[in-house]
Design a protein around this nucleic acid. Structure first.
Length: 910
RNA sequence: GGACGCUUAGCUCAGUUGGUUAGAGCACCUGCUUCACACGCAGGGGGUCACUGGUUCGAGUCCAGUAGCGUCCACCA
């Protein structure tokens, strides 16, 4: 066994072990009947993506789950991959083209796509390399891309199937049009932002009564040329007589617009009259439909005004047109006023520009299995952590709208629909769509494609990633499914993702799973995952979302270089409580690194303390324990080890990762290193006690490494081997992590029954040590100074001291501890183990000593009074449970005794 | 307009079913190169648990309301 170096070199160790894991295929998961399966699909990052702190958190958690599952003996699979990310990727490549002053149209569809693929080959998927640096134990041989041939086929299979079921249809409806990326978007891709602007009051003159006007308020005067009516509420008394009459359009091509009545109009807003522009507003469109009005579209797809806006506005960009329109209205006297106004405007999530409601032919999906998707979650087949997201999920499903799945992009899955050449696609009827001679829908297209033209649009990226858990396991190809282990691994166990994509992805995956996984089978067999863990969002120190544009996101690779992958992992998990957003603080990552260093040095201490023995199994270590030689500290540390093991089991059951990390941290650092290792130092001097003590250290270290391994895989693997805890040629994950009851069972079979009373006594000894150390510190004696201590103790107390004498001398830094009468004026402290004197080397400060004791007495008196008052309360005595009552009485007795003793000391000072 | 979350030490946050004097990390102060670790050890200071009421013998914890911050949903031009 190699000697453990003084400091832990993360970089070298991480590189070495990751290579070893890959070489031995440690992450490849096989179907092993009789063994429980555990599976996770990665939320596929964009192929353009680079690792962010969000990815670090998300993927660390997945890795923790998968590695823990392996240690529990499950066949654990983590499927990696990337998403083609339609708009994002196309934008990246178009940006490169722009440097050459070209657009995609200069290349044409085919050449442009070749360029995107070339880009993807060269630069795509960097993020998967970065995940390896983090230690992600994905089964890399199964890496998938949403545009892989097999995956694409699965996507098209779904389209054709849903089309044949009548769930996918083509329709001309209002869409969210992005003038930046020139495509339609789904409702989920639109962000509402409050925008400060102007509200224009415009008057429309009555045709049959010149000089009389109806006034409307609008934020968009440039759309007036697209007005086809003015609407009022049918019950509005002010306008009863106006309905049916006509007004002149105050801007753009001259026209007489009817005044109509519609209940959608809000009487309270402005004058109670609304201009109707069906081509550019959803509500207007609906009102227009109800009244048989023909929309007038005054905008081009790129957001400039077209000829229907009239010669003055035509060609202007929409916001320039707004200013111009206002000016024109002002000139003609139609503009009554401009008021400052703030309203909500929809923005394209990707392009960051205001979207335009626009009438366009698109492909739509009527979601399948909506009711089942609700039931799957509300009936608990799928559990959300934290649970509160179920409400958000159910609410969305309750108000679900058809999904616009077509995008006017080139990068993506091209919709598998072919039209007979020469057909005018703007004028296709229902009948045309149903006529196989005119429109063909299939995965591979018509056998002879001459005379057919394929649909230009591609599918929304989410319309491919919604089948991720299915297609990554080979669906729908039966051979591929058998090879991938679909039967064994589906449904997957847990999904780890952010709540921001609960609609985009989580809900849709559930519906897709229910529709396609195992038709006809019960819900629980069809769901894509059993648990969904929603992480928090990582924010910067100011609470802002981390983003590339703000430049407030640290580069995880820099952090890995600085603190090690393990340090980063430990740190990020420790600050990520369930479901709360996280404020990133680098010092927490640093403390992750410090923990690794502590672990490393504790292992080093073990190695330096004595020869290593058989540590290959829990049983082998227990064979070396000598329960008859156990002292209180031995009992206490194993008791705490068991409690921590139990805590961890619970944390994993409840997805409480940061609590898990904190539990091990506290146990290992405080209970083991600060106390047990320190008291070991005297035991190790004694030949009779040494071997038992080393065995206990091995037991604690081995179990701790196993518990920690999912969180910090590299250093634990390294120490596992350096300490010889597993056979050479095997990894730590080839060992099994025993849970608390298993550990207890092994102990019992070895005649070990933990004495919890002894463990509790250790708590009191720690308290006494702490008080005496404080006494030294306050008396100005260095902790390392070999002090002289005298204790006035009852026999029972002295017995406890005497039996721990060497240990106490070491822990207290005492040259001698003797029993005897107190020395007046020497610093003193009252403990559970008698009243102690620190014999000062030089004359102390009686005044300081006096005031110290007086302060303590005051605090005790207050506490005594409080407890007495509680016990004097009749209601408390009669209603509190006996255990609480007894605790209070015992406490009072102890406090009173201590109070009396401190009073005595004070009196002795005079 | 609706829903959800948050408010605890200087900072960032824990606090499971109500029960001794509310905890951690960092920061701060004091002492210490004690033979695993200065990425460390020992000790210390620091909080009216946002506010108001209620339930209870007992509330950081349960209930109602208020305020501030945040997130999501929603067609008021």
């Amino acid at each position: 066994m190699a000697e453990i170096n003084k400091s832990y070199e993360a970089g070298e160790v991480e590189k070495r072990w990751y290579a070893a894991w890959l070489e031995k295929n440690a992450f490849s998961a096989r179907v092993e009947l009789g063994r429980e399966s555990y599976s996770i699909v990665i939320p596929p990052p964009n192929v353009t993506g680079v690792l962010t702190m969000g990815h670090v958190l998300n993927n660390t958690l997945q890795d923790i789950l998968v590695r823990r599952a392996r240690l529990e003996g499950k066949s654990a699979l983590w499927i990696p991959g990337t998403d083609h990310a339609g708009i994002a990727t196309q934008t990246v490549v178009e940006r490169e083209l722009r440097k050459e002053k070209k657009t995609r149209h200069d290349l044409g569809r085919e050449k442009f796509l070749a360029k995107v693929w070339a880009w993807r080959e060269e630069k795509g998927g960097i993020i998967l390399e970065q995940l390896r640096r983090l230690g992600a134990s994905c089964d890399w041989d199964r890496t998938q891309f949403t545009m892989d041939p097999a995956y694409s086929r699965a996507v098209l299979t779904v389209f054709v199937d849903l089309y044949r079921k009548g769930r996918i249809y083509r329709g001309k409806r209002m869409v969210n049009w992005c003038p930046g990326s020139l495509t339609a978007l789904s409702d989920e891709e639109v962000d509402m932002r409050p925008v400060k602007g102007l509200l224009y009051r415009v008057r429309y003159e009555l045709v049959d009564e010149p000089g009389a006007y109806i006034e409307v308020k609008t934020t968009r005067p440039e759309t007036i040329p697209g007005d086809v009516a003015v609407a009022v509420h049918p019950d509005d008394p002010r306008y009863q007589a106006w309905v049916g009459r006509k007004v002149r359009r105050p801007l753009g091509p001259a026209a007489d617009l009817p005044i109509i009545a519609d209940a959608a109009v809000d009487r309270e807003f402005g004058s109670g009259a609304l201009k109707i522009t069906p081509a550019h507003d959803r509500v207007d469109f609906e009102i227009g439909q109800r009244h048989g009005l023909v929309p007038v579209d005054v905008l081009n797809p790129d957001g400039t005004m077209n000829d229907f806006a009239g010669p003055v506005l035509a060609g202007l960009e929409r916001f320039a047109a707004r200013k111009k329109a206002a000016q024109l209205l002002k000139d003609s006297g139609a503009l009554v006023a401009e008021e400052a106004y703030e309203n909500n405007v929809g923005y394209s999530e990707r392009a960051g520009v205001p979207i335009e409601p626009r009438l366009a032919w698109q492909w739509w999906l009527r979601y399948p299995r909506v009711d089942e998707a609700k039931a799957a979650v509300s009936e608990g087949h799928i559990r959300f952590f934290p649970e509160r997201w179920t409400k958000v999920y159910l609410h969305w499903l309750d108000h679900i709208q058809d999904w616009c799945i077509s995008r006017q992009l080139w990068w993506g899955h091209r919709i598998p629909v072919w039209y007979r050449a020469g057909l005018d696609r703007e004028k296709l009827t229902e009948a045309d769509l149903g006529d196989p001679e005119k429109v063909h829908v299939s995965i591979d297209g018509p056998r002879d494609k001459t005379g057919w033209v394929q649909e230009d649009d591609v599918l929304d990226t989410w319309a491919s990633s919604w089948i991720w858990p299915l297609a990554t396991l080979g669906w729908p190809d039966e051979l591929a499914m058998a090879r991938a282990g679909f039967e064994y691994f589906y449904p997957t166990t847990t999904l780890v993702t952010g709540p921001d994509i609960i609609f985009f992805w989580v809900a849709r995956m559930i519906m897709a799973g229910l529709e396609f996984a195992r038709p006809g089978e019960p819900l629980m067999n069809c769901i894509p995952f059993k648990n969904v863990y929603f992480t928090g969002i990582i924010r910067d120190a100011q609470g802002r979302k981390m983003s590339k544009s703000l430049g407030n996101s640290p580069d995880p690779l820099d952090l890995i270089a600085k603190y090690g992958a393990d340090g980063l992992r430990f740190g990020i998990v420790s600050i990520a409580p369930q479901g709360q957003d996280i404020r990133f603080q680098e010092d927490r990552i640093e403390s992750g690194k410090n923990f690794c260093n502590k672990l490393w040095n504790a292992a080093r201490f073990r190695q330096m303390s004595g020869p290593m023995a058989d540590n290959a199994t829990l049983v082998a270590i227990y064979d070396r324990l000598r329960p008859q030689d156990f002292d209180g500290d031995d009992h206490a540390i194993l008791d705490r080890l068991l409690a921590t093991t139990r805590d961890l089991d619970r944390c994993f059951a409840d997805f409480e990762f940061s609590a898990a990390v904190q539990a091990i941290y506290g146990f290992f650092w405080n209970d083991f290193c600060d106390w047990y290792v320190e008291v070991s130092k005297t035991k190790l001097q004694s030949p009779a006690l040494r071997d038992n003590c080393l065995a206990i250290q091995d037991l604690v270290l081995r179990q701790t490494l196993l518990m920690l391994h999912p969180f910090i895989p590299f250093i634990t693997e390294e120490l596992w081997h350096l300490l010889g805890y597993g056979p050479a040629g095997q990894f730590i994950e080839d060992a099994r992590l025993s849970n608390a009851s298993q550990v207890t069972a092994v102990g019992t079979s070895h005649g070990l029954v933990l004495n919890t009373d002894a463990a509790a006594e250790v708590g009191r000894v720690k308290q006494t040590v702490s008080l005496l150390r404080a006494l030294k510190a306050e008396s100005g004696e260095a902790a390392s100074k070999q002090s002289v201590l005298v204790v006035e103790a009852a026999d029972r107390q002295w017995d406890a001291i005497e039996s721990n004498l060497p240990m106490l001398k070491r822990m207290l830094g005492a040259a001698g501890i003797t029993r005897g009468p107190l020395t007046p004026h020497a610093p003193a402290v009252v403990t559970a183990h008698g009243t102690w004197n620190l014999i000062p080397q030089q004359r102390g400060d009686p005044a300081a000593e006096k005031s110290r004791l007086a302060r303590e007495l005051e605090a005790l008196a207050k506490h005594v009074a409080g407890t007495q008052a509680r016990l004097a309360n009749e209601a408390f005595v009669s209603k509190a449970p006996p255990a609480v009552l007894e605790g209070a009485r015992k406490q009072l007795a102890e406090l009173q005794a201590k109070h009396a003793e401190v009073s005595r000391l004070l009196a002795a000072l005079g």
